[in-house]
Design a protein around this nucleic acid. Structure first.
Lengths: 198, 198
DNA sequence: CCAGAAATTGAACGATGATCATTATTTTAA
DNA sequence: TTAAAATAATGATCATCGTTCAATTTCTGG
Protein backbone atom coordinates (compact mmCIF):
# COMPACT_ATOMS: atom_id res chain seq x y z
CA UNK A 1 0.00 0.00 0.00
CA UNK A 2 1.15 3.57 -0.51
CA UNK A 3 0.05 7.03 0.32
CA UNK A 4 -3.36 6.69 1.86
CA UNK A 5 -3.98 9.93 3.63
CA UNK A 6 -6.62 8.36 5.80
CA UNK A 7 -5.14 10.64 8.41
CA UNK A 8 -3.09 13.79 8.38
CA UNK A 9 0.37 13.74 9.85
CA UNK A 10 -0.71 15.32 13.13
CA UNK A 11 -3.68 12.97 13.38
CA UNK A 12 -1.42 9.98 12.89
CA UNK A 13 1.00 11.33 15.47
CA UNK A 14 -1.82 11.70 17.94
CA UNK A 15 -3.09 8.19 17.24
CA UNK A 16 0.33 6.70 17.90
CA UNK A 17 0.95 8.67 21.08
CA UNK A 18 -2.51 7.96 22.35
CA UNK A 19 -2.43 4.25 21.66
CA UNK A 20 1.19 4.05 22.80
CA UNK A 21 0.25 5.62 26.08
CA UNK A 22 -2.65 3.25 26.48
CA UNK A 23 -0.32 0.36 25.79
CA UNK A 24 2.44 1.38 28.15
CA UNK A 25 -0.10 2.14 30.87
CA UNK A 26 -1.42 -1.35 30.55
CA UNK A 27 1.64 -3.55 30.14
CA UNK A 28 4.48 -1.34 31.33
CA UNK A 29 7.74 -0.31 29.74
CA UNK A 30 9.32 -3.76 29.73
CA UNK A 31 6.53 -5.34 27.68
CA UNK A 32 5.83 -2.38 25.47
CA UNK A 33 5.87 -3.19 21.76
CA UNK A 34 5.93 -0.72 18.88
CA UNK A 35 4.59 -3.38 16.53
CA UNK A 36 1.60 -3.88 18.78
CA UNK A 37 0.88 -0.16 18.76
CA UNK A 38 1.07 -0.11 14.97
CA UNK A 39 -1.27 -3.07 14.68
CA UNK A 40 -3.84 -1.54 16.98
CA UNK A 41 -4.10 1.66 15.01
CA UNK A 42 -4.26 -0.21 11.71
CA UNK A 43 -0.82 0.66 10.42
CA UNK A 44 2.50 -1.15 10.28
CA UNK A 45 5.77 -0.74 12.08
CA UNK A 46 7.38 1.23 9.26
CA UNK A 47 4.84 4.00 9.62
CA UNK A 48 5.87 4.65 13.22
CA UNK A 49 9.40 5.17 12.00
CA UNK A 50 8.21 7.48 9.23
CA UNK A 51 6.39 9.63 11.74
CA UNK A 52 8.89 9.73 14.61
CA UNK A 53 12.17 8.90 12.95
CA UNK A 54 13.19 6.54 15.73
CA UNK A 55 11.90 4.36 18.50
CA UNK A 56 13.41 6.67 21.10
CA UNK A 57 11.64 9.75 19.82
CA UNK A 58 8.36 7.87 19.82
CA UNK A 59 8.84 6.77 23.40
CA UNK A 60 9.74 10.29 24.36
CA UNK A 61 6.49 11.50 22.85
CA UNK A 62 4.56 8.86 24.78
CA UNK A 63 6.29 9.79 28.03
CA UNK A 64 5.54 13.39 27.14
CA UNK A 65 1.88 12.50 27.11
CA UNK A 66 2.23 11.06 30.60
CA UNK A 67 3.83 14.30 31.75
CA UNK A 68 0.96 16.29 30.22
CA UNK A 69 -1.57 14.24 32.11
CA UNK A 70 0.45 14.55 35.29
CA UNK A 71 0.70 18.31 35.05
CA UNK A 72 -3.02 18.54 34.39
CA UNK A 73 -3.74 16.32 37.39
CA UNK A 74 -1.61 18.52 39.65
CA UNK A 75 -3.08 21.78 38.41
CA UNK A 76 -6.58 20.36 38.50
CA UNK A 77 -6.22 19.29 42.10
CA UNK A 78 -4.97 22.72 43.15
CA UNK A 79 -7.56 24.71 41.28
CA UNK A 80 -9.49 26.91 43.65
CA UNK A 81 -7.74 25.60 46.74
CA UNK A 82 -7.04 28.33 49.27
CA UNK A 83 -5.22 26.44 52.00
CA UNK A 84 -3.02 23.37 52.22
CA UNK A 85 -1.94 23.75 48.63
CA UNK A 86 1.56 22.35 49.06
CA UNK A 87 0.30 19.27 50.83
CA UNK A 88 -2.38 18.82 48.19
CA UNK A 89 0.25 19.08 45.45
CA UNK A 90 2.35 16.39 47.07
CA UNK A 91 -0.63 14.13 47.59
CA UNK A 92 -1.60 14.65 43.96
CA UNK A 93 1.96 13.74 42.95
CA UNK A 94 1.60 10.38 44.69
CA UNK A 95 -1.95 9.82 43.55
CA UNK A 96 -1.02 10.23 39.92
CA UNK A 97 1.91 7.83 40.23
CA UNK A 98 -0.25 5.22 41.93
CA UNK A 99 -3.11 5.56 39.48
CA UNK A 100 -0.78 5.46 36.48
CA UNK A 101 1.79 3.03 37.87
CA UNK A 102 3.18 1.76 34.62
CA UNK A 103 3.15 5.03 32.72
CA UNK A 104 4.74 6.87 35.64
CA UNK A 105 7.42 4.24 36.06
CA UNK A 106 8.17 4.33 32.34
CA UNK A 107 9.12 7.97 32.77
CA UNK A 108 12.21 6.76 34.62
CA UNK A 109 12.74 3.36 33.01
CA UNK A 110 13.33 4.91 29.64
CA UNK A 111 16.51 6.88 28.98
CA UNK A 112 17.89 8.37 25.82
CA UNK A 113 21.27 6.99 24.70
CA UNK A 114 24.09 8.82 26.45
CA UNK A 115 24.99 12.03 24.74
CA UNK A 116 21.62 12.41 23.03
CA UNK A 117 20.09 15.63 24.32
CA UNK A 118 16.54 15.97 25.63
CA UNK A 119 14.37 17.79 23.15
CA UNK A 120 13.23 21.20 24.38
CA UNK A 121 9.56 20.30 24.37
CA UNK A 122 10.25 17.50 26.83
CA UNK A 123 12.48 19.60 29.02
CA UNK A 124 9.70 22.13 29.27
CA UNK A 125 7.22 19.56 30.49
CA UNK A 126 9.60 18.44 33.24
CA UNK A 127 10.08 22.05 34.20
CA UNK A 128 6.33 22.51 34.33
CA UNK A 129 6.05 19.80 36.99
CA UNK A 130 8.79 21.48 38.97
CA UNK A 131 7.10 24.80 38.39
CA UNK A 132 4.02 23.67 40.27
CA UNK A 133 6.10 22.80 43.31
CA UNK A 134 8.23 25.94 43.06
CA UNK A 135 5.09 28.03 43.05
CA UNK A 136 3.65 26.37 46.12
CA UNK A 137 6.93 26.49 47.99
CA UNK A 138 7.24 30.17 47.22
CA UNK A 139 3.69 30.70 48.45
CA UNK A 140 4.35 28.75 51.63
CA UNK A 141 7.52 30.72 52.30
CA UNK A 142 6.78 34.37 51.62
CA UNK A 143 10.24 35.39 52.66
CA UNK A 144 11.89 33.01 50.20
CA UNK A 145 12.45 34.33 46.75
CA UNK A 146 14.11 33.64 43.43
CA UNK A 147 16.87 31.08 43.32
CA UNK A 148 16.48 30.16 46.99
CA UNK A 149 12.90 29.01 46.45
CA UNK A 150 13.79 27.24 43.22
CA UNK A 151 16.66 25.39 44.85
CA UNK A 152 14.53 24.26 47.77
CA UNK A 153 11.72 23.24 45.44
CA UNK A 154 14.04 21.06 43.34
CA UNK A 155 15.34 19.38 46.46
CA UNK A 156 11.90 18.76 47.90
CA UNK A 157 10.80 17.42 44.55
CA UNK A 158 13.63 14.91 44.74
CA UNK A 159 12.57 14.11 48.29
CA UNK A 160 9.00 13.44 47.29
CA UNK A 161 10.17 11.51 44.25
CA UNK A 162 12.31 9.25 46.40
CA UNK A 163 9.39 8.46 48.68
CA UNK A 164 7.05 7.90 45.74
CA UNK A 165 9.57 5.66 44.01
CA UNK A 166 10.15 3.51 47.08
CA UNK A 167 6.41 3.29 47.60
CA UNK A 168 5.80 2.00 44.08
CA UNK A 169 8.78 -0.30 43.70
CA UNK A 170 8.15 -2.13 46.92
CA UNK A 171 11.16 -0.91 48.87
CA UNK A 172 9.03 0.75 51.53
CA UNK A 173 6.84 -2.30 51.89
CA UNK A 174 9.95 -4.41 52.27
CA UNK A 175 11.26 -2.10 54.97
CA UNK A 176 7.98 -1.98 56.85
CA UNK A 177 6.96 1.57 56.02
CA UNK A 178 3.20 1.73 55.73
CA UNK A 179 2.55 5.41 55.06
CA UNK A 180 5.01 6.80 52.53
CA UNK A 181 2.98 9.95 51.84
CA UNK A 182 2.96 10.88 55.50
CA UNK A 183 6.73 10.46 55.63
CA UNK A 184 7.21 12.62 52.54
CA UNK A 185 5.03 15.29 54.10
CA UNK A 186 7.07 15.04 57.30
CA UNK A 187 10.26 15.73 55.39
CA UNK A 188 8.76 18.70 53.59
CA UNK A 189 7.55 20.06 56.88
CA UNK A 190 11.03 19.61 58.34
CA UNK A 191 12.51 21.74 55.60
CA UNK A 192 9.90 24.47 55.79
CA UNK A 193 10.08 24.67 59.58
CA UNK A 194 13.83 25.00 59.49
CA UNK A 195 13.68 27.60 56.76
CA UNK A 196 11.25 29.73 58.68
CA UNK A 197 13.61 29.82 61.65
CA UNK A 198 16.60 31.01 59.69
CA UNK B 1 29.05 -31.82 24.85
CA UNK B 2 27.79 -33.01 28.20
CA UNK B 3 28.81 -33.06 31.80
CA UNK B 4 32.17 -31.37 31.85
CA UNK B 5 32.77 -30.55 35.46
CA UNK B 6 35.30 -27.97 34.44
CA UNK B 7 33.72 -26.07 37.29
CA UNK B 8 31.65 -26.96 40.28
CA UNK B 9 28.14 -25.62 40.57
CA UNK B 10 29.14 -22.82 42.95
CA UNK B 11 32.12 -21.93 40.77
CA UNK B 12 29.87 -21.67 37.74
CA UNK B 13 27.40 -19.56 39.66
CA UNK B 14 30.16 -17.24 40.68
CA UNK B 15 31.48 -16.98 37.13
CA UNK B 16 28.05 -16.05 35.80
CA UNK B 17 27.34 -13.49 38.50
CA UNK B 18 30.79 -12.01 38.19
CA UNK B 19 30.75 -11.75 34.41
CA UNK B 20 27.11 -10.66 34.45
CA UNK B 21 27.97 -7.87 36.82
CA UNK B 22 30.88 -6.83 34.65
CA UNK B 23 28.58 -6.80 31.64
CA UNK B 24 25.76 -4.83 33.21
CA UNK B 25 28.25 -2.36 34.66
CA UNK B 26 29.61 -1.76 31.20
CA UNK B 27 26.58 -1.64 28.93
CA UNK B 28 23.71 -1.10 31.33
CA UNK B 29 20.46 -2.94 31.89
CA UNK B 30 18.92 -2.11 28.53
CA UNK B 31 21.76 -3.65 26.52
CA UNK B 32 22.47 -6.53 28.84
CA UNK B 33 22.50 -9.90 27.12
CA UNK B 34 22.49 -13.30 28.79
CA UNK B 35 23.91 -14.90 25.66
CA UNK B 36 26.85 -12.55 25.77
CA UNK B 37 27.54 -13.49 29.38
CA UNK B 38 27.44 -17.18 28.49
CA UNK B 39 29.79 -16.66 25.57
CA UNK B 40 32.31 -14.78 27.67
CA UNK B 41 32.59 -17.50 30.27
CA UNK B 42 32.85 -20.18 27.61
CA UNK B 43 29.43 -21.71 28.10
CA UNK B 44 26.12 -21.48 26.27
CA UNK B 45 22.82 -19.88 27.08
CA UNK B 46 21.25 -23.12 28.25
CA UNK B 47 23.74 -23.45 31.06
CA UNK B 48 22.62 -20.16 32.59
CA UNK B 49 19.11 -21.52 32.75
CA UNK B 50 20.34 -24.73 34.31
CA UNK B 51 22.10 -22.83 37.03
CA UNK B 52 19.55 -20.13 37.80
CA UNK B 53 16.30 -21.57 36.54
CA UNK B 54 15.23 -18.32 34.94
CA UNK B 55 16.48 -15.10 33.53
CA UNK B 56 14.89 -13.17 36.39
CA UNK B 57 16.67 -15.16 39.08
CA UNK B 58 19.97 -14.63 37.30
CA UNK B 59 19.42 -10.89 37.13
CA UNK B 60 18.47 -10.87 40.77
CA UNK B 61 21.74 -12.58 41.61
CA UNK B 62 23.66 -10.01 39.56
CA UNK B 63 21.85 -7.13 41.25
CA UNK B 64 22.57 -8.89 44.52
CA UNK B 65 26.25 -8.64 43.71
CA UNK B 66 25.86 -4.91 43.19
CA UNK B 67 24.20 -4.66 46.58
CA UNK B 68 27.06 -6.59 48.17
CA UNK B 69 29.59 -4.20 46.69
CA UNK B 70 27.50 -1.25 47.77
CA UNK B 71 27.22 -2.44 51.34
CA UNK B 72 30.96 -3.09 51.43
CA UNK B 73 31.65 0.37 50.06
CA UNK B 74 29.46 1.96 52.73
CA UNK B 75 30.92 -0.04 55.59
CA UNK B 76 34.43 0.46 54.27
CA UNK B 77 34.02 4.18 54.15
CA UNK B 78 32.74 4.32 57.72
CA UNK B 79 35.33 2.01 59.21
CA UNK B 80 37.21 3.77 61.95
CA UNK B 81 35.43 7.07 61.45
CA UNK B 82 34.67 8.80 64.72
CA UNK B 83 32.83 11.93 63.57
CA UNK B 84 30.68 12.89 60.64
CA UNK B 85 29.64 9.31 60.08
CA UNK B 86 26.13 10.05 58.81
CA UNK B 87 27.40 12.57 56.28
CA UNK B 88 30.12 10.16 55.21
CA UNK B 89 27.53 7.42 54.73
CA UNK B 90 25.43 9.65 52.51
CA UNK B 91 28.42 10.75 50.48
CA UNK B 92 29.45 7.13 50.08
CA UNK B 93 25.91 6.34 48.90
CA UNK B 94 26.27 8.88 46.10
CA UNK B 95 29.84 7.95 45.31
CA UNK B 96 28.96 4.33 44.77
CA UNK B 97 26.05 5.22 42.51
CA UNK B 98 28.20 7.54 40.42
CA UNK B 99 31.10 5.13 40.16
CA UNK B 100 28.81 2.22 39.28
CA UNK B 101 26.24 4.15 37.26
CA UNK B 102 24.91 1.31 35.20
CA UNK B 103 24.95 -1.35 37.87
CA UNK B 104 23.30 0.99 40.37
CA UNK B 105 20.64 2.03 37.89
CA UNK B 106 19.95 -1.61 37.02
CA UNK B 107 18.95 -2.13 40.65
CA UNK B 108 15.84 -0.09 39.91
CA UNK B 109 15.37 -0.79 36.20
CA UNK B 110 14.81 -4.45 36.84
CA UNK B 111 11.66 -5.62 38.53
CA UNK B 112 10.30 -9.09 39.15
CA UNK B 113 6.97 -9.86 37.50
CA UNK B 114 4.09 -8.67 39.67
CA UNK B 115 3.19 -11.15 42.35
CA UNK B 116 6.58 -12.86 42.33
CA UNK B 117 8.06 -12.39 45.78
CA UNK B 118 11.59 -11.16 46.47
CA UNK B 119 13.78 -14.00 47.65
CA UNK B 120 14.85 -13.64 51.27
CA UNK B 121 18.55 -13.35 50.45
CA UNK B 122 17.83 -10.28 48.34
CA UNK B 123 15.54 -8.73 50.89
CA UNK B 124 18.29 -9.10 53.45
CA UNK B 125 20.77 -7.23 51.32
CA UNK B 126 18.36 -4.32 50.88
CA UNK B 127 17.82 -4.32 54.60
CA UNK B 128 21.57 -4.25 55.14
CA UNK B 129 21.83 -1.00 53.19
CA UNK B 130 19.04 0.44 55.28
CA UNK B 131 20.71 -0.93 58.37
CA UNK B 132 23.77 1.20 57.81
CA UNK B 133 21.66 4.34 57.69
CA UNK B 134 19.51 3.27 60.64
CA UNK B 135 22.62 2.75 62.70
CA UNK B 136 24.04 6.16 61.90
CA UNK B 137 20.73 7.90 62.43
CA UNK B 138 20.39 6.21 65.78
CA UNK B 139 23.91 7.30 66.67
CA UNK B 140 23.23 10.86 65.59
CA UNK B 141 20.03 10.95 67.61
CA UNK B 142 20.76 9.37 70.99
CA UNK B 143 17.27 10.09 72.22
CA UNK B 144 15.66 8.34 69.26
CA UNK B 145 15.15 4.64 69.63
CA UNK B 146 13.56 1.59 68.10
CA UNK B 147 10.82 2.12 65.58
CA UNK B 148 11.18 5.90 65.64
CA UNK B 149 14.77 5.70 64.41
CA UNK B 150 13.93 3.04 61.86
CA UNK B 151 11.06 5.05 60.45
CA UNK B 152 13.17 8.17 60.14
CA UNK B 153 16.01 6.21 58.59
CA UNK B 154 13.75 4.73 55.94
CA UNK B 155 12.42 8.15 55.07
CA UNK B 156 15.86 9.73 54.89
CA UNK B 157 17.00 6.84 52.76
CA UNK B 158 14.20 7.64 50.35
CA UNK B 159 15.21 11.30 50.48
CA UNK B 160 18.80 10.52 49.63
CA UNK B 161 17.70 8.07 46.97
CA UNK B 162 15.55 10.71 45.31
CA UNK B 163 18.45 13.14 45.16
CA UNK B 164 20.83 10.48 43.90
CA UNK B 165 18.36 9.33 41.27
CA UNK B 166 17.76 12.84 39.96
CA UNK B 167 21.50 13.44 39.92
CA UNK B 168 22.16 10.38 37.79
CA UNK B 169 19.22 10.56 35.44
CA UNK B 170 19.82 14.16 34.49
CA UNK B 171 16.76 15.71 36.11
CA UNK B 172 18.84 17.86 38.44
CA UNK B 173 21.08 19.04 35.61
CA UNK B 174 17.98 19.89 33.63
CA UNK B 175 16.61 21.90 36.52
CA UNK B 176 19.85 23.72 37.16
CA UNK B 177 20.85 22.02 40.40
CA UNK B 178 24.62 21.72 40.52
CA UNK B 179 25.23 20.17 43.93
CA UNK B 180 22.79 17.33 44.60
CA UNK B 181 24.80 15.88 47.48
CA UNK B 182 24.75 19.20 49.32
CA UNK B 183 20.99 19.38 48.91
CA UNK B 184 20.53 15.84 50.20
CA UNK B 185 22.67 16.68 53.21
CA UNK B 186 20.58 19.82 53.76
CA UNK B 187 17.42 17.77 53.90
CA UNK B 188 18.90 15.27 56.32
CA UNK B 189 20.07 18.12 58.52
CA UNK B 190 16.57 19.63 58.38
CA UNK B 191 15.11 16.41 59.73
CA UNK B 192 17.68 15.92 62.45
CA UNK B 193 17.46 19.54 63.63
CA UNK B 194 13.71 19.32 63.86
CA UNK B 195 13.88 16.04 65.68
CA UNK B 196 16.29 17.36 68.27
CA UNK B 197 13.90 20.20 69.11
CA UNK B 198 10.93 17.93 69.71
C1' DC C 1 33.11 -52.05 32.22
C1' DC C 2 28.62 -50.66 31.90
C1' DA C 3 24.22 -48.47 32.99
C1' DG C 4 22.08 -44.65 34.76
C1' DA C 5 22.51 -39.93 36.34
C1' DA C 6 23.89 -35.35 35.39
C1' DA C 7 25.55 -31.50 32.71
C1' DT C 8 25.85 -29.13 28.43
C1' DT C 9 24.66 -28.09 24.04
C1' DG C 10 22.50 -25.83 20.26
C1' DA C 11 18.65 -25.94 17.15
C1' DA C 12 14.04 -24.20 17.14
C1' DC C 13 10.51 -20.75 18.29
C1' DG C 14 8.25 -16.52 18.64
C1' DA C 15 9.17 -11.97 19.57
C1' DT C 16 11.59 -7.59 19.26
C1' DG C 17 13.64 -3.16 17.01
C1' DA C 18 15.63 -1.53 12.70
C1' DT C 19 16.11 -0.82 7.62
C1' DC C 20 14.74 0.10 3.07
C1' DA C 21 13.44 -1.26 -1.77
C1' DT C 22 8.99 -1.62 -3.54
C1' DT C 23 4.46 -0.26 -4.37
C1' DA C 24 0.41 2.58 -4.15
C1' DT C 25 -1.45 6.95 -3.98
C1' DT C 26 -1.65 12.07 -4.46
C1' DT C 27 -0.04 16.23 -6.12
C1' DT C 28 1.97 19.04 -9.34
C1' DA C 29 2.83 20.93 -13.61
C1' DA C 30 2.84 20.65 -18.57
C1' DT D 1 -6.11 15.47 -19.31
C1' DT D 2 -2.11 13.21 -18.41
C1' DA D 3 2.54 12.29 -17.35
C1' DA D 4 6.00 12.94 -13.93
C1' DA D 5 7.44 13.83 -9.41
C1' DA D 6 6.73 13.68 -4.55
C1' DT D 7 5.01 11.29 -0.76
C1' DA D 8 3.03 7.63 2.32
C1' DA D 9 2.80 3.05 3.60
C1' DT D 10 4.10 -1.52 3.36
C1' DG D 11 6.21 -5.78 4.62
C1' DA D 12 10.14 -8.72 3.68
C1' DT D 13 14.65 -8.95 5.67
C1' DC D 14 18.07 -8.92 9.24
C1' DA D 15 20.22 -9.43 13.64
C1' DT D 16 19.16 -10.17 18.14
C1' DC D 17 16.73 -11.45 22.26
C1' DG D 18 14.75 -14.73 25.96
C1' DT D 19 13.01 -19.39 26.36
C1' DT D 20 12.54 -24.36 25.82
C1' DC D 21 14.02 -28.98 25.49
C1' DA D 22 15.47 -33.30 22.89
C1' DA D 23 19.79 -34.96 21.99
C1' DT D 24 24.39 -35.66 23.18
C1' DT D 25 28.35 -36.20 25.98
C1' DT D 26 30.54 -36.98 30.14
C1' DC D 27 30.84 -38.59 34.72
C1' DT D 28 30.07 -41.93 38.47
C1' DG D 29 28.64 -45.83 41.31
C1' DG D 30 28.16 -50.54 41.27
Amino acid sequence: MGRRSDHTRPELREMIVSEGHRQISEVGFARFSAREVAKRIGYTIGTLYNVFGSYDQMLLAINGRTLDLWIAALEGRLEGLETGRLEAAIRAYFTFAVEHRHAWTALYDFRLPEGEPMPDYYREKVEAITGVIVREIAAALPEAHGEKARSLARSLLATVHGHCFFALNGTFALLGEEDPIARALDRVEDALARYEDG
